[in-house]
């Protein structure tokens, strides 16, 4: 997100959310795995993902940050999976 009015000069990078518009963000998080000589195995078949939307007015987590949204999602890859 853009940090306050400072980043709205048209000269600096600005990532604020426009009104009445949907903004989509996509995050890809690889499951941890280890590679053997001939196969790859999951170290963990569950991921707990915490999605947080912060407003950081001064660019740092200095006590002035404000959380706008927070949600936790659990996903898994329970199917037995070995890549050969």
């Amino acid at each position: 997100m853009g940090r306050g009015p400072y980043e709205k000069s048209g000269l600096l990078a600005e990532t604020s959310l426009p009104p009445m518009k949907h903004v989509h963000e996509r995050f890809e998080i690889p499951y941890p795995f280890k590679d053997g000589k001939k196969q790859r195995e999951l170290i963990n078949d569950e991921l707990v993902v915490s999605v947080k939307l912060w407003y950081v007015p001064f660019g740092e987590f200095d006590g002035y940050e404000v959380i706008f949204f927070e949600e936790e999602k659990k996903i898994d890859l329970k199917t037995e999976w070995i890549w050969r």
């Binding site: 959310l17 426009p18 009104p19 518009k21 949907h22 989509h24 690889p30 991921l47 993902v49 890859l77």
Partner: peptide, 24 residues
């Protein structure tokens, strides 16, 4: 690199206000 197992997180943000967020 083969097949990579991934978690895919899609976030949809909708600004309901009358101005960009954040602003002052």
């Amino acid at each position: 690199e083969g097949v990579i197992p991934k978690g895919i997180i899609k976030v949809d943000l909708y600004n309901k206000t009358g101005h960009v967020i954040p602003d002052g």
